[in-house]
């Protein structure tokens, strides 16, 4: 499911925000309901921890309640909510010791001097269906995302997981469009490499059986 907003939703949402700014608490409840899952999902995918995601969601929803008067509508309301969510999630992450990230450069594709592929590339794209929702596959995917450096990870989550546009992700992260694209491309290459090792190993396992 993607969270790209159809136009009617955006108009409805802007109306809700204005109603809440005017003191309508029911409008706040609706906003909280709309955003709860998005805030929780994004913070959970960043922190990988239910307690942290719960804390972040609570904090963000309370911030929306208290700071709604500071929202001026210069950017989309959703961008504002995402930005508050990211900041709160980063605070959680910063308070923890973290494992060093792997170097993303080592996992970029390699070519010979003439610019041609050096490694054997298997096409596993057709074989993921049966594997997709097994616990093992889920773990591999989550682990791979966890290993992404933060700069690439957040772009990947906003753009490919939440389904926001490149422009919107740039607005939220204060990045230019080319910067968003380049980070997203690197994230995808890194993840592709990680998933390739898994799916290739899996298909060789199947042959042996």
């Amino acid at each position: 499911m993607s969270f790209t907003q159809p136009k009617e939703n955006k108009i409805l949402e802007e109306a809700l925000v204005r109603q809440f700014q005017g003191g309508d608490l029911e409008a706040y409840d609706k906003i909280a309901e709309i955003y709860q899952k998005k805030i929780y999902g994004l913070s959970f995918n960043l922190t990988r921890n239910q307690m942290d995601a719960q804390d972040v969601t609570q904090e963000v929803l309370l911030t929306l309640f208290r700071k709604i008067h500071t929202f001026q509508g210069k950017s989309a309301f959703s961008s504002w909510v995402y930005r508050i969510t990211l900041n709160a999630s980063y605070m959680k992450l910063r308070s923890k010791k973290k494992e060093p990230n792997v170097s993303i450069d080592e996992l970029m594709p390699s070519y010979n001097g003439a610019g041609f592929q050096q490694e054997k590339i298997q096409d596993w794209s057709e074989n993921t269906e049966s594997l997709l929702f097994t616990n093992e596959t889920r773990d591999v995917i989550n682990k791979a995302i966890e290993l992404l450096p933060e700069k690439e990870k957040v772009v990947f989550l906003l753009r490919d997981v939440e389904g926001l546009s490149t422009e919107k992700a740039g607005e939220i992260l204060d990045l230019t469009v080319p910067a968003v694209k380049s980070r997203l491309h690197r994230a995808r290459l890194f993840l592709r490499k990680k998933l390739s090792s898994y799916f290739e190993e899996f298909s060789s396992r199947k042959v042996e059986e």
Binding site: Y40, N45, V161
Partner: peptide, 11 residues
């Protein structure tokens, strides 16, 4: 596949 997996997060 990453999107399908990560979007399964529910409150």
């Amino acid at each position: 596949i990453c999107r399908d997996t990560l979007n399964q997060v529910d409150v």
